[in-house]
Design a protein around this nucleic acid. Sequence first.
DNA 1: TAGATTGTTAATCGATTAACAATC
DNA 2: TAGATTGTTAATCGATTAACAATC
Lengths: 222, 222
Amino acid sequence: MATPLPRRGIPDATVARLPGYLSVLGTMSARGILSTSSEELATAAGVRSAKVRKDLSHLGTYGVRGVGYDVEHLAFQIATELGLARDWPVVIVGLGNLGRALASHSGLATRGFRVSGLYDRDPALIGHRIGDLAVAGMEALASRADSADVIGVIATPAGSAQEAADALVAVGISSILNFAAAAITVPDGVDVRQVDVATELQILAFHKQRRATATAWVGAAP
Amino acid sequence: MATPLPRRGIPDATVARLPGYLSVLGTMSARGILSTSSEELATAAGVRSAKVRKDLSHLGTYGVRGVGYDVEHLAFQIATELGLARDWPVVIVGLGNLGRALASHSGLATRGFRVSGLYDRDPALIGHRIGDLAVAGMEALASRADSADVIGVIATPAGSAQEAADALVAVGISSILNFAAAAITVPDGVDVRQVDVATELQILAFHKQRRATATAWVGAAP
DNA sequence: TAGATTGTTAATCGATTAACAATC
DNA sequence: TAGATTGTTAATCGATTAACAATC
């Protein structure tokens, strides 16, 4: 990134788990649960309680010894830490099957995001309505004024991902979530996260094969 | 997991990067590039060359000092290591927008997977064709015979994710990719990977806010 | 007070990185 | 041989874990 950041001291591994804790707390809150413990949180989030306490200790001391954590208060603190005290506008580039699925994904609005623009370079798609929004052309993206705040999502085919990234960067968007099956190159200062179905499946396949091999060994005659 | 595995010695962090290398090698191969170096691979994959060499050294010694790596050979070795010497059948549970997008996702067939079953509990969806397949009911999932080989994908709403996971586990499926916005609980021996759009966006939001704060400090009077 | 549970410490483990000898 | 690039070493860094003093 361009600016050397004043180290905020929250480890990346912790940041990656905070959304999970937040989601669990949301479920608890919806069920009317007022208070919880690191042990309960850990079980629900699928980690160890020591990890939960260590993670939360990076944010501040929001628990009470011998008692636990106030669900609402902790949820608020985590949300604040994650930058979710406000809603973030999200734009989607590429409105094929995946882009359309993301555009109508209810899990975004409830978790701090608001889909605020849909862009595609295919003229055949322009004008199509998806939820509240109509698909616009790439030139409409270029004229957005609020881009410093926007998070961009790329849902194009692999071959168009770099073009989409370039367009997002050109408007000044500096946070990108890339669903295309291709790595993209961006300037310093732009934060990219990559999500790829095939990658996830290949990691599962590796473990699966390893287990199959292990079983074969166990089953084999000495 | 149930069986204590004979340690194969490939670190998790390395396994998670192998699909990326494989994808880059595939692109090179398609362009007719026969040979490459750790430096080129690293640039294309977005990592450092030392990391590439260290990662590849865990698989064996497939490079030649002073020369580099043979693209086809290295791709073959990585694919073999990942368990992609064969194709893996994938079943999708939940055929809403996301499930349909995944079912018709071309990036699967080209990278070692074959969508071989679509299941939903909604009678209104049963029978609908998506690509080559028709959506079947959950009872059809229960009668699959090949389940030990299958990788299950959950693309249901959050509220139905556990039910879907239970159904997959009940048939003997032991590798699950969960796209639902809810953690699922599975028995030992079942390998789960979770992908959640909102989680990824929240991690981006955290970094974005941190940068905004840093900029504000820089801009503030002393 | 007795019981419960946090926040922190310190030990361990795993991942990253730079440097370089090996070797094509 | 000279130049290039690997595979490995060793140092550093970051993450995890268990244990427990602090304290409600």
